[in-house]
């Protein structure tokens, strides 16, 4: 997995609560058997009109969101289906960070499996980021940019906004070092075998870590 240490990128503001994974990647695109190639279908039903042309009103299609790699949204982001195709699609489209006040549990853990960082910030801080993004757009200057540092666990802009965020220590380490979770777990294969033996399960032949 690609390590995540710091990331600087343009912010795309998706001002909606309860963005569910059915919106992030609609079911008609779940038939693929690869992990890649989902970016073209991200937010498909919102992004495209029935005739296939881009919907100009949709947030990600606006000029200020071009090249964005940090997605800003509202409460309960990623609710609904467990489909990991949702973070696959976001990552494939170019997002590495999602910022919201709260996330649904399964989506939240799925992000970490894919080198993406979901950041929870207070509702007021998220509100402030929406305000600053809108202000940058209105002023017609350069697009609003944030810098995320996983070493210090802060998210900051160049105009005085700087907030710490919380993250589970183990998940942080895995992300910083790009660790393979399965290999890590197989380091504990003796504990797993001991649990199985204690519960009367037949032994399993060793496999490589």
């Amino acid at each position: 997995m690609k390590p995540f240490v710091t990331h600087t990128g343009v912010v795309a503001a998706l001002d909606r609560a309860n963005v569910d994974t059915d919106q992030i990647i609609p079911k008609q695109f779940l038939k693929r058997i690869e992990r890649t190639g989902f970016g073209q279908f991200l937010f498909f039903d919102w992004r495209f009109r029935p005739d296939g042309s881009p919907e100009p009103e949709f947030e990600l299609n606006r000029p200020e969101a071009a090249g964005a790699s940090i997605l800003l949204s509202r409460r309960n982001f990623g609710c609904g289906s467990s489909r990991e195709h949702a973070p696959w699609a976001l990552a494939d489209y170019g997002f590495r960070v999602v910022i919201a006040p709260t996330f649904a549990d399964i989506f939240y853990s799925n992000c970490f499996q894919n080198g993406m960082l979901p950041i929870r910030l207070d509702e007021q801080d998220v509100e402030e980021l929406f305000r600053r993004t809108a202000q940058a757009t209105a002023s017609g200057g350069s697009p609003y940019t944030l810098r995320v540092d996983l070493n210090t666990c802060t998210v900051a802009d160049s105009a005085g906004f700087s907030k710490p965020f919380e993250i589970d220590a183990f998940r942080r380490t895995c992300l910083l070092q790009g660790l393979d979770n399965i290999a890590l777990t197989l380091d504990h294969v003796d504990s797993i075998a001991a649990w199985e033996a204690a519960h009367g399960l037949p032994p399993v032949a060793a496999q490589q870590p």
Binding site: R35, S82, R83, E84, P87, I106, S109, N110, Q113, N114, N181, I182, T185
Partner: peptide, 10 residues
């Protein structure tokens, strides 16, 4: 409970 595909692999 439900899990993602990476966890399925795990």
């Amino acid at each position: 409970f439900g899990i993602g595909t990476s966890e399925v692999e795990h």
